[in-house]
Amino acid sequence: MKSALAGLALLAALGLPFALSEFWIFIAIEVLAFALYAVSFNLLLGFGGMLSFGHAAFFGVGAYAVAILWKKAGLTMVLAFAAAPLVAALVAIVIGYLSVKRIGIYFAMLTFAFQMLLYTIALKAGWLTGGDDGITGLKPAGLLGDPVAYYFFALLLSAAAIYLIHRLVRSPFGYALQALKGNPARLQYVGVDVRRHRLATFVVAGAFAGLAGALFALSSGNVFPNWLNWTASATPIVMAVLGGIHSFLGPVVGAAVYVLLEVVISGKTEYWPLVMGCVILLLVLALPDGLSGLGQLLRRQFRGTGNG
């Protein structure tokens, strides 16, 4: 049932660009990138029980990596793009090594601090990052310059990446992660090095966030320091919670709703963050399990009346 739904969504996604204007194709690409970003974040929060408050570090590093390697270091675009998630993974190894020793709020604060460090570097190291102005002119040339082609490129990559994360969650690695979330002490006494397991999860999540960042950078054609700002770390948190952190595809739904709300509301009023905040507040209050909990709720209602 669930995989049928996912298949149906994928089929719809394949036909989508032929029904949309160019503007909406770019929005669809944004949804794809942020869906991957939110799923990578939820690997940490929903499955590993680690609330990172600095996940934007990896989205931003992925974006800056493709920009710098392509525009400043002279690599080809394809190579720079392929390197972006690896650079994000390397940064995640360093930040993770120093952060996963702590748990709970201390872990959140450490990830937050490292992300702000990177934000400062992006702002101040102008020779490398372009400072305040960021790096622009990142539109791909050739085939990928076509929005529809880029859409399919993004669809292929984010769907494949989300599938990989799905396999990971269901694998022995994911079982151990689930066990770790609930009872790290017990897990140590079945022979698992809990810290290394946390670190590995952090690095995987970082690499996929980096891929999402690179995907989005080439679609929007630029990268700015505020992608590394702390508000950018709140985005995947809101998306994941909005969609439901206990469901694997919840963050995908959350990302789509978030991006669409932002587009629709910001077109209507300059106070869009206020309206957006209220809408999200209402949704979270009404649906504590996120939008993906809505289906379950309806099913239960339906069954309830059917029995009675």
């Binding site: 396999r167 990971l168 269901r170 694998s171 022995p172 690695f173 994911g174 079982y175 151990a176 689930q178 066990a179 897990l187 079945v190 022979g191 698992v192 397991h197 590995a200």
Partner: peptide, 22 residues
């Protein structure tokens, strides 16, 4: 699953990222 994850842990197989654990 409790016992499965324990067996995987003792045998050092919790790094397998692909095969379904069940």
């Amino acid at each position: 699953e409790n016992v499965q994850v324990a067996i995987l842990g003792y045998r050092g197989q919790t790094w397998r990222p692909w095969t379904p654990a069940r």
